[in-house]
Write a protein that binds this DNA or RNA. Structure first.
Ligand SMILES: [Zn+2]
Length: 243
DNA sequence: TATTTTTGACCAGTC
DNA sequence: TGACTGGTCAAAAAT
């Protein structure tokens, strides 16, 4: 009887030790590895593009798990590589608390929303556009007489899938607030921003990346009408890069 | 009360 | 000419 009791205590004690070991391995080894497995900008699969029957442009997707890659072009082909935001958010919600969560994003105040690209916007319309899965929202810059507009498409859960900027601001960017302090370079004045990745870093040290494509490379007939200064700019879905 | 969002109507361009 | 589409307006509702 005593030996059974001893055996029970031995097993009971060791089970607790195993549980603690498992927890520590998960916290200090598995979770960091999960972070490392999130996408890097350099490792992408080769693409197979098929032209759109209506526009003649290309849209294809990277086969890599955490990557949404699309390619457009008629004679010129431009690629973009951005992370799959829903999957990233899912990964974040499953244990990477140090990154901006979707819920946090959804509960931004108006001031915080305005700081997403540094300007203040007022919505003036929404339409279902043929060929788009999600409705397109139309925004104007709230600065007096500013001609700048933007259109964006959101999924039903609020994820932005596409942003198109038209025109130029005729005023400096409003003072950024404490949350998004540095690095917020979206549609820069004068259009000198080159094609490529841009990023902003939040006040909490989190970095959001996205890719810029200038309208001028889009094939003729594309519906993103170019104004006389060729400043219509299409922005792709932003991605979140974990630290 | 002021500002923003929603949403149906309207308009212009295209086929 | 009429249908269709995308962009904008504007009144009502929401914040
Ligand atoms: Zn403006």
């Amino acid at each position: 009887m005593c030996s059974y009791l001893c055996l029970f205590l031995y097993v009971y004690t060791n089970v607790h030790i195993y549980i603690y070991i498992y927890i520590y391995i998960y916290i200090y080894l598995v979770r960091p590895l999960l972070c490392i497995q999130l996408p890097t900008w350099s490792a992408f699969s080769r693409l197979q593009a098929e032209p759109s029957p209506t526009t003649g442009t290309f849209t294809c997707h990277c086969s890599q798990t955490l990557c949404n890659t699309r390619t457009w072009g008629a004679s010129t082909t431009i690629s973009e590589h951005v992370p799959n935001v829903p999957q990233l958010v899912n990964a974040i919600d499953n244990g990477v608390e140090t990154t901006t969560s979707q819920k946090e994003h959804e509960h931004m105040t108006m001031a915080e929303k305005a700081s997403e690209d540094g300007y203040n916007w007022r919505k003036y319309g929404q339409k279902h556009v043929k060929g788009s899965e999600f409705p397109r929202s139309y925004y104007k810059c709230t600065h007096a007489n500013c001609p700048m507009k933007k259109m964006l498409e959101r999924t039903h859960d609020g994820q932005i899938t596409e942003i198109i900027y038209r025109g130029q601001h005729d005023h400096p960017k409003p003072q950024p607030n404490r949350r998004f302090a540095v690095g917020a370079v979206l549609c820069s004045q004068g259009g000198e921003k080159s094609e490529g990745f841009s990023s902003l870093t939040t006040g909490e040290g989190k970095t959001i990346f996205w890719y810029v494509i200038f309208h001028s490379i889009f094939p003729p007939g594309n519906d993103f009408a170019c104004n006389n200064r060729s400043q219509a700019i299409k922005w792709t879905r932003p991605g979140i890069l974990l630290h």
